[in-house]
Amino acid sequence: MDYTIVVALEMVRAVAWLVLLASGLAIIFGMMRIINFAHGEFLMLGGYTVVISTGHGVNEWIAMLVLAPIVVGIFGVLVERLVIQRLYGRILDSLLATWGLSMLMIGGVTMIFGNSVTGVATPLGGMSIGAYQVPRYNFVLIFAAIALLLAIWAVLKFTKAGLIARATMQNPDMSEALGIPTRWVYMATFGIGSAITGFAGALLAPLTGVVPTMGVNFIAQSFITVITGGASVITGTLSAATLLGSISQGMTFLTGPVYGDAALLLAALVLLRLLPQGITGRIFKKSL
């Protein structure tokens, strides 16, 4: 019984993990059709923000929940102004440019901080379920993922900004004709997507440690989740994360973490063969 609870909890955590990883990417991709290859490095930047600010005596929760999103968000806006804005509509070029950015960031951070893992203490410690020890931090992750999805949903659905963003997403020319400054919408969207990515990176830092090349470990999972999910931000991310998270976590329990990743990829490949537009390309079409 206890074991079942632990396994179920781990599965939910795996889903939450994928939701956190992919949300920022899904916003940027769903709205702007820009696939940000430096996504993993944005996560890394969030992690480093936490390491540096806690090193200077900032409270770790403030560093994670406030500083990391702000820093990475501002960085995202800068990147959009300098690079991305020249590449709208040139999907492949934007992929190549952001890949270049990703290597530039890895190299740059390595030059500044060195190529070693900096650990971040996991807050909150553990608790026991029956005979098993479970880190309390898992609940933080799950809660953060739920809160994040709810917040994105509420903003897109109920606010003026969300309405404008959705309009731009659906038909940029018409929105422009109606007087919406789509350039600024794009910039803001990229910034918000980056901020969410930074937030996710900060939350993941205690679990993985922070190292310049850490992005590589997450980029596959993030992209596969977003692509399998399809164009709609919330339903897509949630459904893909649920499906892939439980498959890979189930596989991990049965065999080990390596095959968990491989199972995730295989499941995604088969799914894309069946639903080339992603889950929300066929099912839940009208959802957000």
């Binding site: 890949w99 990703s102 290597m103 530039l104 960031m105 390595t110 030059m111």
Partner: peptide
């Protein structure tokens, strides 16, 4: 790696 990335961009 940084140089390679910069060249690519």
């Amino acid at each position: 790696i940084a140089v390679l990335g910069a060249i690519m961009m």
